[in-house]
Amino acid sequence: MVWRRKTTKYLMRPVISTLLFLAVLAISANSSARFERTYSPRGPAHLSISNVNGSIHVVGWDRRTILARADASPSITIEDQALGDDITIWTRRNLSLGHANFEVSVPPETSLAIKNVIGKIELQNITGHVSVNSFDSDVHLVGIDSPSVDVRVTSGDIFFDGLLHEGGSYNLQSMRGDLDVSLPSASPFNLNARALSENINLGSFLSNLTGSSRGPKGVSGTYLRGGPRLTLTAYAGRILLHKK
């Protein structure tokens, strides 16, 4: 009887240990890896983020440092490189797609180059150059006061609320999604809007557009004295221009 009890006791130990080990393994498999870095550029920095799947949110703040944080699947490795004021962050993955969600705070004058495949992109309060290159993403640009903005997505809506600089270039393009642009009513620009869907709504900007050519698929012209080049291209989606 005593022998039996002892045997059971000895057998239970490895079983419990194995179960505990498996539980820890399961928890760690579900948990996400964290990435956090602080960079201290000496001048206006150039930040590139290259992601595959997940959201990217970059906001301008009043500090001189760049703080980049990300939550990522265990299958994702986040790497970075800082060469002077050029900072590059990118994701590596194994066979599984995984995800990485970025939250980044930057000095407003930082130039941004954002690449993604799937996932929402939000940029707020940025005054540096902006370039967004993605495939399956909604792109929100709010409080943008940049000398140039270039956004290309294959599918997804693009929302722009900001200011245009004299001599600046602003290109927004989506193959499958709406372009929604809000500008101050006193903001001059040269417009070139193209929509294969023949759905272009320039609101009250239209009445003050001079030297314009207007067709169902394309409108171009000068608003007020002109200057910044605003190029809007949509295919299966609308172009909407609002006055702020």
Binding site: V52, N53, L97, V117, I118, F135, D136, T154, S155, M175, R176, Y235, A236
Partner: peptide, 12 residues
């Protein structure tokens, strides 16, 4: 998921 995203966008 990646394959689906590619095929969907190629289709568009």
């Amino acid at each position: 998921e990646l394959r689906t995203a590619f095929e969907r966008n190629l289709y568009y």
